[in-house]
C-alpha cells in the first residue's frame, strides 16, 4: 500500500508529510471536575478530567510527602475503535500509557507547592484514530490549566513517523498500523525541554533526528494552539462579566 503518493506527495488522508490534523480544544466540559478538557486531533477525540489538589486518600501511595502525588488513569471507551473489542480495565497497554502520561505531566506540575496532597488525572479516549497518547497528554495539559494547578510550562505532545522514505507528522491509525517507526515526543515549549521520547521499531540516527525535529515542530504548533484556547477561555469569562 502507498502511504505517500509518489507523484503528488500527499498522504492517505490528503495531508502533506509535514501537515498536522485539525486541532480542536475545549475546556470546562465536565461540570463536576476541578478542571476538564476535550481535545481532538483529527478523528482522535479525548476527554480529560482533573481532580485536585486534594487530601491524599491512600496514605500508603505517597512516597514523598514533600511533593504532591500525581495519579493518572487512561482508558479507551469500548466504542472508541471500529471493531468494538472489549478491553479489561487493567490491561498492560492502558497501564503503560497511564504511566507515560503521569511522568510527562509530573515534569510540568510544580508538585512541591502542594505537599501532602494528590492530583488525579482521568483520561478517556472517546474516538481513536492514531496518536491517542499524544492527544491524551494535550488534553491533560488543558485540563490541568483549567483546574488552576501551577505548572512550569505548557507540555504538549505529538507523534511523527517514517514511511516510504518520508518523515510524516502526526500519524493516523492507518499510518500507525503500517509497522514503520513511530516517535512520540512530549515537549515543554518555553523551556525547550523534552519530557517524553518513545519510539517503536528502529531508525538510523540521522533519520531519527529528522523525525524527532518534525515531532518537536508539531509540539510547538500544538502549544501555540493550546495557548490560544486558554487565552480565549479567560477572555470569554471576562467578556461575559463585562
Amino acid at each position: 500500500m502507498e502511504y505517500v503518493n509518489p507523484l503528488t506527495g500527499f498522504r492517505v488522508d490528503g495531508r502533506r508529510p509535514n501537515e498536522m490534523r485539525q486541532l480542536k480544544g475545549e475546556v470546562g466540559v465536565v461540570a463536576r471536575a476541578d478542571g476538564s478538557a476535550l481535545f481532538e486531533m483529527g478523528n482522535t477525540r479525548v476527554i480529560a478530567a482533573v481532580y485536585g489538589p486534594r487530601e491524599v486518600q491512600n496514605k500508603g501511595q505517597q512516597v514523598n510527602s514533600k511533593d504532591a502525588l500525581v495519579r493518572c488513569e487512561y482508558r479507551m471507551a469500548d466504542f472508541s475503535t471500529g471493531d468494538r473489542r472489549r478491553k479489561p480495565k487493567g490491561d498492560r497497554r492502558s497501564t503503560e500509557i497511564s504511566l507515560v502520561i503521569r511522568q510527562t505531566m509530573e515534569a510540568s506540575i510544580l508538585t512541591h507547592l502542594m505537599p501532602r496532597s494528590q492530583i488525579d488525572i482521568f483520561v478517556q479516549v472517546l474516538q481513536a484514530d492514531g496518536g491517542t497518547r499524544a492527544a491524551c497528554i494535550n488534553a491533560a495539559t488543558l485540563a490541568l490549566a483549567d483546574a488552576g494547578i501551577p505548572m512550569r510550562d505548557i507540555v504538549t505532545s505529538c507523534s511523527a513517523g517514517y514511511l516510504c522514505s518520508t518523515p510524516l507528522l502526526d500519524l493516523n491509525y492507518i499510518e500507525d498500523s503500517a509497522g514503520g517507526p513511530d516517535v512520540t515526543v512530549g515537549f515543554l515549549t518555553k523551556m525547550d525541554k523534552v519530557t517524553l521520547l518513545q519510539m517503536d521499531a528502529k531508525l538510523p540516527m540521522d533519520t531519527f533526528e529528522t523525525v524527532m525535529d518534525l515531532a518537536i515542530e508539531g509540539c510547538k504548533a500544538i502549544a501555540n494552539y493550546i495557548r490560544e484556547v486558554l487565552l480565549e477561555n479567560t477572555r470569554r469569562l471576562e467578556c461575559q462579566r463585562g
Binding site: 510540568s108 490549566a145 501551577p150 505548572m151 505548557i154 518555553k190 523551556m191 486558554l230 487565552l231 477572555r235
Partner: peptide, 8 residues
C-alpha cells in the same frame, strides 16, 4: 493582559 503557564 492574559498569561498562560510558562509565559515570562
Amino acid at each position: 493582559n492574559h498569561v498562560v503557564p510558562g509565559d515570562v
